[in-house]
Design a protein around this nucleic acid. Structure first.
Lengths: 212, 212
DNA sequence: AAATAATTTGGACAACCGTCAAGACGGCTG
DNA sequence: CAGCCGTCTTGACGGTTGTCCAAATTATTT
């Protein structure tokens, strides 16, 4: 057999397939972003593929073409969103030159997140709760949780570093603390409790020096 | 008009109505307890009234007779369960005569809860997430959250007291920490991570002396 | 015992869901 | 240009849902 020609053909085939894949994936993300609007509004349980389609520029068939499943769609949505999420504080962490600078930068971003992206975050908490019932979600959720824990840890270690200290607790405990505080503040904020944001900021401001 | 006789009639009427209410409420609780089985298994979204009825000794019509709504039913369920929940550690708190005794008693209950009542607790987290979308849930959820915060605070203050100290953080932060840790451990436990429980216990054991 | 009220039953209803498939569209290749 | 292939639309299907209701049953009162 003509080894070379089949090799060349294969190379071309691989290249075009990769291109196709890339295009396919780009479309998936596009659809996922459109779906996030409705999902953030209604939550996982109340959102149907039809509703997602109606609130977007797509028809409901397209979603079935690009996603094997409703679960598949939601996973892709939250993965995509959280991938951006975990980098939110990175700039503050790398540029801050003092503890105060880091604290204020962190708190500002925290407040902005809570106020502007409440819907996306409640979707995340929704998905994480669903993962306790639906095994198909667990792998993704645990992975995202790990990356969020790492995000918090980067902030904490930098904060400690700026004070020539060491974080006083484990990454897991620190993440649990901030996650718990954020979750509680989010619920209060969504319930129109105007003190939710300032209370969270006060709490974090008080906490930071005691844990590092 | 005969003030006395109408007064007596009213008294009787009030008494019978109170009796009826009591009976009515007892039945509600009975139904709620039956519903908890299925709800804990499937979660809020996946559970239908019919499924609840089929897994119980009742017909689906009865549930509509005693509960105005599906939301009404779920609220009643979780309220009922959590009312028992918040007293779980009270005995340990009142009987413990030393820090070690309190620690070990607390950890034992904590581990038992995580292993034996995982399904009930994931339902609670499910409901709390849904409260971020469904306003009808918020009042109950915030109330339960407050009572859980108080529960944790009772443990912490007693622990501090046994060491002649004061808790080093606010009730809110302390609850956020434990809630976050428990939630994470619960998810891992449900995902068959055998280290979930021991890791939680280690973490709490390490944490307790540092926060009080 | 008769009558009235409360409770329970089980079926009917319309609405909605995820899924699927047959076909239409449009660009690319041969 | 013809044919193919990936993409997309549309409508239909079976099944499930919450809700409601009329009748049956049980409990309570008269």
């Amino acid at each position: 057999m003509a080894r070379q020609s089949t090799g060349a053909a294969q190379r071309v085939a691989v290249a075009t397939e990769a291109l196709r894949d890339e295009k396919f994936n780009a479309r998936r993300v596009e659809l996922a972003e459109a779906a996030l609007e409705t999902l953030g509004e209604l939550g996982f349980a109340r959102t149907s593929l039809r509703e997602i389609a109606q609130n977007s520029a797509f028809t409901h068939g397209v979603f079935h073409y690009y996603f094997s499943d409703k679960l598949d769609l939601i996973c892709c949505c939250v993965r995509h969103y959280k991938a951006k999420c975990v980098t939110r504080y990175d700039e503050v962490v790398t540029t801050a030159r003092s503890r105060d600078e880091l604290t204020e930068g962190f708190l500002a971003k925290l407040a902005a997140t809570l106020e502007n992206e409440a819907r996306m975050h409640r979707l995340w908490y929704d998905l994480r709760s669903q993962a306790m019932f639906e095994p198909a979600f667990r792998k993704d959720v645990l992975e995202i949780d790990k990356s969020l824990e790492a995000m918090i840890w980067r902030i904490a270690t930098r904060y400690a570093e700026l004070g020539n200290k060491q974080p006083a607790s484990s990454p897991a405990a620190l993440y649990a603390l901030f996650d718990g505080l954020f979750q509680s503040a989010l619920l209060r904020h969504l319930a129109n409790d105007e003190k939710a944001v300032p209370d969270l900021l006060d709490e974090v401001r008080r906490l930071l020096p005691t844990i590092c």
